[in-house]
């Protein structure tokens, strides 16, 4: 209950600020614009835009998600801890009768809900529009959305941890975007890495777990284990970092 109370407080605070609305608008316009106009020109197998490819499929939309989320998630979570610290409200928050873990999970749930809502708002209306143009495979869309939520959970856990490590929002954003961007980039570097590293790096890369299965309509329990581990470890470290400040 206390976790949910923290979550509600965080969500309410997010929607107080116009930044959330602007971020949602920018994300929706960027993702949908890329899908309709540009396609996905990165990597060995570039994908054409909807009008050029002429196929009722959201594969381009899903392929852009890991990169765009790597920029969006730090933007939404940068203030989660950093702002509390810079304003000095962190001490106050930690004096409440809640455990640190509950605060961490509450903040995580709030950020995850927001990102999931954003993804839904960016994907579902486009899916409805594309379904009007051709035979869209809805099962792939739903599984892809589920995978995108898991990917977002992993990203949010990492970004929150980085936000907890700093007191400057801008630093939290930059470090978060660089770390998540590097994780996205790793997938493209696998081909040039030594074989001994390639498998491990590919497994460690969140976008591999998303694009390799859920984005194609495939559910794989190994991906659930991976994202569960990522979130669990991220939140645990987040708790440890905040606890350490409590001890000081």
């Amino acid at each position: 209950m206390r976790t949910l109370a923290v979550c509600r407080r965080e969500l309410a605070a997010t929607f107080e600020s116009p930044i959330a609305y602007v971020t949602i608008a920018l994300f929706v316009i960027t993702l949908d614009g890329l899908f309709f106009f540009l396609g996905y020109p990165i990597g060995n197998l570039p994908l054409p835009s909807l009008w050029l490819g002429e196929q009722a499929s959201l594969v381009v939309l899903f392929t852009w998600l890991p990169l765009l989320l790597a920029l969006l998630v730090p933007a939404l979570t940068m203030g989660a801890w950093a702002e509390e610290r810079s304003r000095g409200t962190e001490e106050l928050l930690l004096t409440y009768p809640v455990r640190t873990g509950e605060v961490v999970i509450g903040k995580f749930l709030a950020a995850w809900t927001l990102v999931a809502l954003l993804i839904t708002l960016a994907v579902v209306p486009v899916a409805i529009s594309v379904a009007g143009l051709g035979a869209l495979d809805w099962a792939t869309v739903w599984v892809g959305l589920g995978g995108a939520y898991m990917l977002a959970a992993g990203y949010v856990a990492i970004a929150l941890l980085l936000s907890a490590c700093t007191s400057e929002q801008l630093v939290a954003f930059l470090v978060g975007a660089i770390v998540l961007g590097l994780l996205w980039l790793l997938r493209m570097l696998v081909g040039v890495l030594p074989a001994s590293l390639a498998s491990a790096v590919d497994y460690a890369c969140p976008s591999s777990h998303f694009l390799g299965s859920a984005a194609r309509g495939v559910f794989d329990l190994r991906d659930v284990v991976y994202f569960g581990s990522l979130v669990g470890f991220g939140l645990y470290l987040n708790t440890v970092v905040v606890e350490r400040r409590r001890w000081r």
Binding site: D137, A139, T140, W142, V143, Y203, S213, R216, G217, V218, F219, D220, L221, R222, V225, Y226
Partner: peptide, 13 residues
């Protein structure tokens, strides 16, 4: 899990 947990289902048409 990566070696032994082969629970996989293709939901696509």
């Amino acid at each position: 899990a990566s070696r032994h947990l082969v629970v996989r289902h293709d939901f696509s048409e």
